[in-house]
């Protein structure tokens, strides 16, 4: 084990996979000499050269489309997005092309492609650099979607993503890059997709949280504990595939659930999770599932306003009490 930052864990996995598989290469903006705005490709160009760590023009659709062609013909590209907000510029290539080609070609095409980058609040980047894009990619069949909340998960899930033969949207969080923890040194350390992590055990209420919200949910759980409510905190880790079983097992015990994400509440992934829980586990529920997510407005610049839009520890705390009728 080595103590690593989330960003370094990502960088190291890319390097290890590039060492062991010559078909893996990286493309994106400012990833070479700079090593990415957040350091996730730092020094990779020194080790692997400009061919395999390729600075692209500021042409998101162009390099995603180029990555698709490379993936169709035997390569395993990792497409680096400086901010995942920029996927909208490449949406045709991502959702009409990458997501659909295998299906439309009757299964006779394979696209081992990782699209990775960071999203979310935390740097005062305002509306076009702070949003959460996962719902777009869980809605259109074809992508797998991973959202690591810790350094070790980032490493294990990214390795799985790079070795997967499907397009994977790998969603990091800018406010988590500096967080660190012990990460296994094993160059084959991988976390399978579709396996949620139970971050805290509890018998009274289940809190399902993604990405940055996992930490907030754990904080809320500590506060709840002081009031005699023991919350179980579940991090799905991948949204597609989604580990419903682990959530249901928890809810069978607690009878109550809160789903929290940073993305907009309206039509967010939380709605899907809540529905799946109700469809499969209505008999376990003692209260309606409550969803928390960003309010239905563009992410504002002001920190005061940003905090007013995105769920905080207090909001999660309140929601947990609400479903416990406390």
């Amino acid at each position: 084990m080595s103590r690593k930052k989330y960003s370094v864990a990502i960088r190291d996995v890319i390097a290890e996979e590039m060492r062991s598989d010559p078909s893996v290469f990286v493309m994106g903006e400012d990833i070479g000499a700079l090593g990415g705005v957040f350091g996730c490709t730092r020094d990779l160009q020194k080790e692997f050269g400009k061919n395999r760590v390729r600075d692209t023009p500021i042409a998101e659709a162009g390099y995603v489309g180029t990555g698709i062609g490379a993936a169709l013909t035997g390569m395993r590209p990792i497409l680096d997005f400086m901010y995942l907000d920029f996927v909208y510029v490449a949406m045709d290539q991502l959702l009409n092309q990458a997501a659909k080609l295998r299906y439309m070609y009757g299964g006779r095409a394979t696209l081992p492609l990782v699209v990775r980058g960071q999203q979310g609040i935390g740097r005062g980047n305002a509306g076009t650099h702070s949003q959460s894009v996962e719902a777009f990619f869980t809605h259109i069949p074809g992508f797998k979607v991973a959202m690591p909340s810790t350094a070790s998960d980032a490493a294990g899930l990214l390795r799985t993503a790079i070795r997967d033969n499907n397009p994977v949207m790998f969603i990091e969080h800018k406010a988590l890059y500096a967080s660190s923890e012990e990460v296994p040194d094993d160059p084959n350390f991988a976390i399978p997709f579709g396996k949620a992590a139970v971050r805290r055990q509890g018998k009274d209420v289940t809190i399902i949280a993604t990405s940055l919200m996992v930490g907030r949910a754990l904080e809320a759980a500590e506060a709840l504990s002081k009031e005699g409510i023991e919350a179980e905190v579940i991090d799905p880790r991948t949204l597609l595939p989604l580990d419903l079983d682990t959530m249901l097992k928890s809810i069978e015990k607690t009878g109550r659930a809160v789903v929290v994400h940073e993305a907009h509440k309206n039509n967010g992934v939380g709605a899907e999770i809540a529905s799946q829980i109700m469809e499969a586990g209505f008999k376990f529920l003692d209260a309606p599932v409550v969803r928390l997510g960003a309010k239905a407005c563009t992410l504002p610049f002001s920190l005061v306003l940003e905090n007013a839009v995105v769920p905080g520890v207090d909001d999660i705390h309140e929601a947990a009490k609400q479903v416990c009728y406390k």
Partner: peptide, 19 residues
């Protein structure tokens, strides 16, 4: 998608170049 396949040829060419 009009224009949708154009970059895929780029990618196949890049793949050939890398291989």
């Amino acid at each position: 998608i009009v224009g949708g396949g154009i970059p895929h040829a780029n990618g196949a060419a890049l793949s050939a170049q890398l291989r």
